[in-house]
């Protein structure tokens, strides 16, 4: 039997808020297989981004275990976590989060630089290849401020793929894009999945479900059946 790529077992995450604890995720158990395109949906504050943060190691569970590609993420030290994250996970943010002083190609080269993946002289070629694949090769030497939102998000995806991660985590990747650009971004992610990439995407978008192979719904930090989800 094949092991799931991502496993969350009894994961709870609480945050201290004023004098009490706020439970963002409550006893969540979830498995995601390699090559799946999972859309995580739910209302604001339901725990979607927290779930992504736990898978990427950005946050640590208060209780429970998180495994990605066989690595017990919840046990990693801060130092090992960064190195692991750089190689195993690619993250795409809602606001792109490109470094403003680096060109598109340099932004894509940066993860390779930090993690020492690919020989130094091959990094630019790989970055250009990824930008080509995402349709923004002609923007390679431009600074992010000169790119449109859609172009920036494509560069962000290229950067997330730079170290050929096992899983691509996207946090509201279309949240800051117009509907046409959002559609093409979702198509792009679906294409990556078809090529074998595992994608976990947090989204508000109803249409995102059309592209996802599975939808996971969250309400008040608990997993519910998608059809139980009440939309505001």
């Amino acid at each position: 039997m094949t092991q799931p790529l991502i496993t969350l077992r009894g994961v709870t995450k609480t945050f201290p808020v004023a004098a009490r604890e706020f439970t963002a995720l409550d006893d969540v158990t979830l498995e995601i297989d390699k090559g799946e395109f999972v859309a995580v949906v739910g209302q604001s504050g339901s725990g979607k981004s927290t779930l992504l943060g736990l898978i990427s190691g950005i946050d640590r569970p208060t209780r429970g275990e998180v495994y990605v590609g066989g690595t017990a993420v919840h046990t990693l030290s801060e130092r090992d976590m960064s190195a692991w994250r750089g190689r195993a996970v690619g993250i795409v943010f809602q606001f792109f989060q490109l470094l403003p002083t680096l060109t598109a190609a340099e932004n894509v080269m940066l993860p390779m630089d930090f993690c020492g993946t690919w020989p130094a002289r091959e990094r630019r070629d790989r970055a250009l290849g990824l930008l080509e694949r995402l349709g923004v090769a002609d923007q390679a030497d431009k600074l992010p401020s000169t790119l449109s939102g859609g172009q920036q998000q494509r560069v962000a995806v290229a950067r997330a793929l730079a170290n050929a991660p096992a899983v691509l985590l996207a946090d509201e990747p279309t949240g800051n894009l117009d509907s046409r650009t959002a559609e093409s971004m979702l198509e792009l992610l679906a294409e990556l999945v078809r090529e074998g990439q595992t994608v976990v995407m947090v989204t508000h978008e109803q249409r995102a479900r059309r592209f996802a192979s599975r939808t996971v719904a969250l309400t008040d930090g608990r997993l519910v059946a998608p059809e139980e989800l009440v939309h505001a």
Binding site: R79, G86, Q97, F114, A160
Partner: peptide
């Protein structure tokens, strides 16, 4: 701070 967060999210270690 935000840029440090981004760099860490793409694999930069604290020492780097």
């Amino acid at each position: 701070v935000r840029e440090i967060g981004i760099m860490k999210s793409i694999g930069a270690r604290g020492g780097q």
